[in-house]
């Protein structure tokens, strides 16, 4: 036994040395700044990027979409991250957007729930407490239990901004992870919640919104409306630094697409 251990260690070292060779040597720093909703996606991409290009340093400053766009404009970062499309005046101000991925948010209910479809207005009324009983929507006579995420969560921010219910939602439960939301909704026949599309399982039923059921395809073609783009913001006409360009190409490559899916978003490719 004592003899085997050093052997294994030596083998492990050799393997890791070879693994080290496969990563490409390039030096430089890429700084990104912006949307907190993109934290997961950009975190995964940043890690993979640094693994692939061992000399590269990647930084991400979670400040919010607005500050991120401002930061690119003032040249304080290489790439800005925004979880909304750029406005016309921002584009006129010399900024370019490149869509990295789409974030689809599914509205979920318990599988026992008879409802299959809601429109955005009704959804907003449920979340702001205007409609409080499922019978008003043709369901059972039971109080609607509104489940959401904690303040500051990107999913909550996305859901509330798309449904126009910012700061007006009356949550019964504010949970801190997608998994908790799904578990809670699966346990309570009267609950409604929202969760990142990629995380939805058969424990719960994803409602169609305005007649369109959520899927990667409907999110990508824009027909499913509870979604928003994750955008990379750059300066129009200004060349990115070598490191930043490498990162930019990497995150838009086919190689990065599965990583984006894993982080819960729908890649453009």
């Amino acid at each position: 036994m004592k003899k085997i251990l050093p052997l294994i260690l030596a083998a492990a070292l050799t393997v890791s040395a070879f693994a080290g060779c496969s990563s490409q040597q390039k030096n430089g720093t890429v700084s990104t700044d912006g949307s907190t909703s993109m934290e997961e996606v950009i975190g995964v991409l940043g890690e993979a990027f640094q693994e692939k290009y061992s000399g590269m340093t990647f930084t991400y400053n979670p400040t919010g979409s607005g500050s991120g766009i401002q930061a690119v404009k003032e040249g304080r970062c290489d790439i800005g991250l925004s979880s909304r499309s750029l406005k016309e005046e921002e584009k006129a101000d010399g900024l370019t957007e490149t869509v990295l991925a789409y974030d689809g948010i599914a509205v979920i209910v318990n599988p026992e729930n008879k409802l299959d479809d809601l429109d955005v207005e009704t959804l907003a009324k449920i979340y702001t407490g205007e409609i409080t009983n499922w019978s008003d929507l043709g369901g059972n006579d039971a109080q609607i239990v509104v489940i959401g995420r904690e303040a500051g969560s990107g999913t909550r921010d996305g859901f509330e901004s798309i449904t126009g219910t910012e700061d007006a939602c009356k949550y019964r439960q504010e949970l801190t992870s997608t998994g908790d939301v799904i578990t809670t909704v699966s346990q309570n026949p009267d609950a409604i919640g929202y969760a990142s599309l990629a995380a939805v399982s058969d424990q719960v039923k994803a409602l169609s919104v305005g007649g369109i059921s959520p899927s990667e395809a409907t999110v990508k073609d824009g027909s499913y409306c509870i979604q928003r783009p994750f955008v990379l913001v750059t300066k129009t006409g200004t060349e990115l630094s070598d490191a930043a360009q490498t990162f930019f190409d990497f995150v838009l490559s086919d190689e990065a697409a599965p990583l984006i899916s894993k982080a819960g978003a729908v890649p453009v490719k």
Partner: peptide
Amino acid sequence: SGNAPNLPELFGSVRFLTTAVASEMSYSS
């Protein structure tokens, strides 16, 4: 406990001092 920042009620959703810190820390700024 449900984590909604309501004044305490026995059957209501509530948030404790500890959970107030824990639930919002990760995305706060």
